[in-house]
Design a protein around this nucleic acid. Structure first.
Ligand SMILES: Nc1ccn([C@H]2C[C@H](O)[C@@H](COP(=O)(O)OP(=O)(O)OP(=O)(O)O)O2)c(=O)n1
Ligand SMILES: [Mg+2]
Length: 981
DNA sequence: ATCCTCCCCTAC
DNA sequence: TAAGGTAGGGGAGGAT
């Protein structure tokens, strides 16, 4: 629920660039222990609790709990005779330890007022833990919950209103400190009772929100308030003073005009935001390319006019990118600066602010960013995105020129006019950058010389725009992009795989690898692309996840099969602002959200799209952070997001804003800490289409389960493809059917409604995930998350061996050596066999048994809820323990150390080499590991086996070869990669 | 297994 | 004194 957002780009001064900032960035990277994480998650409680199954690990057993829970629910329902205000509606609480008032009294107070009580600590349900004190271990365990003192309940009841829990948090200082601020807590109630006019269901979150949150700083620490308001500016009406906790000078009039609360802020801001422009332009240029293609009858509609993209044989891809685009284009109107270091940015040196330098609050240097700088400036170390202050240090002679957004767009259109006319296929990448498939045109018109074509393109663009582009050429997108980097500035470069491998690139040079992935890889000693090539797939996966590892593996070898995809439909419409966001109270927050929603609706409207769900994104000032590094910026933040279904497909801003307001309340963020707000609308459909025909196409069948909870009457978006009534479909006019097709393809490109050919609807069976961008796994790949350990696994194996042959290595013997057997035999199974099974597998079997026979499981010893006695049902044996082993096992072992021990004992016990069955067994195991995607373990087992057999009978080498081979067959099939020991 | 939500990351 | 926006790939972990 909560993430960190610190220097997610090179924005903050903490991460401003250059070689030195690796260190700084590391230091500035906040810990991942987000204390808000669970707190927010806990807010995410369905209004009506379903019978969620608590994890076995928590305590006791499911059936036990469920029974109790049902009883509790009945009890609680009965108790909710609404004779009291339901001030605790939505609160799900758990009481820990000794309390005053007693558990019983607290429970009564809470339940009578709408709270719900859980005996156990359900991570997904409990919203508050009530406790007077915590043991060390509990403190640790509960760190991510809202743990409040009982006084919170008592005072809330007394105040007939849910009080802010924070003030009663047990983590919020000692009891003495708590008691000291108590009066304030209660006094606040009336003053801040109901400032927001949200009328809807009086739930706890709204109340707790409006209570106290937007309060100005308390007197003792509120000096900023007085200090800033008494500053030179004309006095502002008291109720319009901006809360300025960090001396940002927010109340100066010219600053106030740059806060999101100022009227018309969004459009003014967007008009000046380069990044907003980039984003908009990207979509516009994609449209423009599609439009050009259509107008020329070039593309998919009429494939004869042009060859279309290369299919099924080797391609020639070009990546064309303007050199320092903004600078080049802006210099058209500043030709006298062409030979100087130049940057494009907002504030020009000469124009000093009208408010000019009076000390105190000013930022030391420009935190304005350089959008683009020319190559001369780069020779000083200046980079795109850098703060001006830093840039002018590096390059004192740096000249600046202002943005000329209109020029950029004009130049870009000219550029696209040219390349679309030439290329077989064009994918707009950005305002200044395109990918071209030129396979055919190079062959047919340039005698196979891509370089010649590239020079032609460069010449034409230069003639038409006076700006230079560089061109990279390669057999795939990857190579073309890397080639472009080499080509710049003002050049052409062609790259094949062989050349790539010889380049000695750093990981960061691969597209999709940013500073984070670079760091992760680097921490494992992977610094260059060659290191990736040498790394095992298992290691890569453990660093960055499965798909990313596959991508890296390919990229490091120059392999990239991604096709150009110029026509991928947009999946989301979003809007976000993270500058000038300083909100003094809940009303301002709600209002800003509404403005943003209006904005996103505007863009959806323009695209004739409506949405079925919305996500609200908030950046929240991270605890302990003060004034951001960037003027009016967001600074180091935690990111939160929460989504909800909309009431039916809609593009109506009022409806969407209403949902967003609720989401905002649920997120429970102090408005003073909001530093950025974003809205995304997804689950899109065509507004026209939906209004016209969407509903009548659905067969009268209930749709598939919807993930998102929604507020009221759900109207599903498009019916699923299989639900379409084809007879209706076929009656539709051609244009509508085309649109339908597009709509469905946007959901799943493989869907073919058979519209043009009037075939029945079908979904192509072939689904091929595209290799693509790269992220870093937060954690290593797990041990096979939902392992489906084959039922077929032959547990008879131990007994199936000839006992009398002792010279050969025997796995079972090895196993006996390392395992201390204990415990009981459950049932029908031959007791000898059972006794020889390792603990873990016995557990597994017992679990299976319990499940299939639907008998009641029994609490495990390690459950901390000791109340469930070990009800060992007579002959049935022990049930499953808390530790559920999932993933392949070798003779009951799954942990690396155990498996190693087993292997070692196996090898050690031999003189003549292993049994074939045992080799097969180990082969099964390693193969299963690979199938379960646990390459790290597989690799370890193989390597360890190799290590152990060193100097042993040659039969062992054969055995290793067999096992390795089996693993490699699978690994090859899955990852086009094999184990190199 | 696959989906969903809530993130994180990257790119321009 | 500045305009730190956004789409999309993908991962973790829970739900189904
Ligand atoms: N941090 C950044 C990066 C880029 N841009 C804008 C300005 C750039 O001119 C344009 C294109 O980005 P490029 O990455 O292509 O950079 P340039 O075109 O400026 O330089 P070059 O392509 O020669 O490296 O995007 C920006 O505003 N902020
Ligand atoms: Mg460029």
């Amino acid at each position: 629920m909560v993430g960190r957002d610190d220097m997610s780009r090179d924005g903050d001064q903490e991460y401003q660039l250059g070689p030195a900032d690796a260190l700084i960035a590391t230091v500035a990277t906040p810990s991942r222990s987000g204390t808000n994480e669970v707190i927010i998650a806990l807010e995410h409680v369905p209004a009506v609790s379903n019978a969620a199954v608590p994890g076995f690990g928590d305590f006791g057993l499911y059936f036990d709990q469920r029974k109790r829970k049902l009883a509790e629910q009945a009890e609680q329902r009965a108790a909710i005779a609404p004779k009291h205000d339901q001030i605790f509606a939505g609160v799900v609480f758990h009481i820990n330890g000794y309390t005053q008032p007693s558990h019983y009294e607290l429970k009564l107070l809470l339940v009578e007022r709408g709270g719900r009580f859980l005996h156990y600590l359900s991570k997904t349900q409990v919203t508050h833990i009530i406790a007077s004190g915590l043991t060390m271990s509990k403190e640790k365990e509960f760190r991510n919950y809202k743990v409040v003192r009982p006084e919170w309940v008592v005072d809330s009841v007394r105040a007939r209103k849910l009080l802010s829990w924070q003030r009663y948090s047990i983590f919020n200082g000692s009891y003495a400190e708590f008691a000291a601020r108590l009066p304030l807590a209660i006094d606040d109630v009336h003053e801040w009772g109901d400032i927001n006019g949200e009328p809807s269901a009086g739930n706890i979150l709204e109340n707790s929100k409006s209570e106290g949150y937007s309060r100005p700083p308390p007197a003792p620490t509120g000096n900023s308030f007085a200090a800033t308001s008494s500053r030179r500016q004309a006095p502002v009406p008291p109720n319009t003073i901006v809360v300025d906790r960090f001396n940002e000078g927010l109340n100066r009039s010219w600053v106030r005009k740059n806060l999101v609360t100022d009227k018309g802020f969004i459009s003014r801001y967007y008009a000046s935001s380069r990044l907003h422009h980039m984003s908009v332009w990207k979509a516009e240029m994609k449209d423009y390319v599609a439009q050009l293609n259509q107008r020329r009858g070039t593309h998919s509609s009429a494939k004869d006019a042009k060859p279309g993209p290369a299919m099924g044989y080797s391609r020639t891809i070009m990546h064309v990118d303007f050199d320092c685009f903004f600078v080049s284009a802006s210099l058209l109107s500043h030709p006298q600066l062409v030979d100087r270091p130049v940057a494009v940015c907002h504030m020009q040196q000469q124009e000093l602010a009208d408010d000019g330098g009076h000390g105190a609050i000013e930022h030391p240097g420009g935190t304005g960013q350089i959008a683009s700088c020319n190559y001369l400036a780069r020779s000083f170390g200046v980079k795109n995105g850098m703060f001006m202050a830093q840039a002018s240090q590096l390059c004192p002679s740096l000249a600046t020129v202002p943005y000329e957004f209109d020029t950029y767009k004009r130049v870009s259109k000219t550029f696209y006019d040219i390349v679309t006319e030439i290329a077989d296929e064009t994918q707009a990448v950005s305002i200044d950058e395109a990918l071209l498939d030129v396979t055919h045109v190079v062959h047919q018109q340039y005698q196979g010389s891509a370089e010649a074509l590239a020079q032609h393109i460069r010449r034409r663009v230069l003639e038409s725009t006076q700006c230079t582009v560089s061109v990279g050429i390669g057999p795939n997108i990857l190579l073309a992009r890397i080639a472009t980097a080499k080509a710049k500035p003002d050049g052409v470069r062609s790259l094949n795989i062989e050349q790539l491998l010889a380049m000695g690139l750093h990981t960061r040079d691969l597209p999709g690898i940013g500073h984070t992935v670079e760091e992760s890889l680097s921490s494992q000693g992977i610094k260059r692309v060659a290191d990736i090539r040498a790394a095992s797939m298992g290691l890569l996966q453990s660093i960055c996840g499965e798909k990313t590892a596959a991508t890296l593996h390919s990229f490091s070898r120059g392999v990239d099969n991604r096709p150009l995809e110029p026509d991928k439909p947009r999946k989301v419409f979003g809007v976000e602002i993270g500058w000038g966001v300083r909100l003094s109270n809940q009303h301002e927050a709600d209002d800003f959200v509404t403005r943003l929603v209006e904005e996103v609706c505007r863009s959806m409207e323009a695209a004739k799209r409506i949405g079925g769900a919305v996500t609200l994104k908030i950046k929240k000032r991270q605890e302990g952070q003060g004034k951001p590094g960037k003027f009016l910026g967001h600074g180091i933040c935690d990111s939160l997001s929460k989504s909800a279904m909309l009431p039916g497909m809609t593009g109506d801003s009022a409806k969407i804003a209403h949902v967003c307001a609720k989401l905002l309340l649920q997120m429970n963020v102090d408005p003073l800490d909001i530093r950025a707000v974003g809205i995304q609308v997804h689950k899109l459909a065509s507004s026209k289409l939906h209004a016209d025909v969407g509903n009548m196409l659905a067969k009268p069948r209930v749709g598939q389960g919807e993930g998102l909870k929604q507020c009221s009457n759900l109207l599903p978006e498009l019916p699923s493809a299989s639900q379409l009534d084809l007879s209706v479909l076929n009656e539709l006019p051609e244009s509508i059917r085309q649109e339908l097709q597009a709509a469905y393809q946007q959901i799943n490109p493989k869907i073919d409604l058979g519209l043009s050919s009037r075939k029945p609807a079908s979904i192509s069976p072939e689904v091929r995930p595209q290799p693509s961008k790269i992220g870093v796994a937060k954690r290593p790949i797990s041990d096979g998350i939902n392992a489906t350990r084959g039922r077929s696994r032959k547990l008879v194996f131990p007994t199936a061996r000839p006992k009398d042959v002792a010279e050969k290595a025997s796995l079972i013997d090895a196993f006996r050596k390392i395992e201390t057997l204990d415990s009981i035999m459950p049932s029908q199974m031959d007791s000898d066999v059972w006794r020889h099974l390792p603990l873990s597998i016995r557990r597994e079997l017992a679990r299976e048994y319990v499940k299939t026979s639907a008998s009641k499981p029994v609490a495990a010893a390690s459950g901390k809820e000791a109340n469930v006695g070990a009800t060992t049902s007579a002959a049935k044996g022990n049930g499953p323990a808390n530790v559920v082993v999932s993933g392949p096992i070798l003779f009951g072992k799954h942990e690396v150390a155990d498996v190693r021990a087993l292997i070692k004992a196996w090898v050690d016990s031999s003189e003549l080499g292993p049994y074939e069955e045992d080799v097969a067994e180990v082969g099964d195991y390693v193969e299963a590991l690979v199938k379960h995607r646990n390459l790290l373990k597989a690799e370890d087992a193989l390597k360890y086996l190799k290590f152990c057999i060193d100097g042993e009978h040659s039969a062992w080498a054969d055995a290793l070869a067999v096992v390795l081979d089996r693993a490699n067959v699978i690994c090859m099939a899955m990852y086009s990669s094999s184990f190199g020991l």
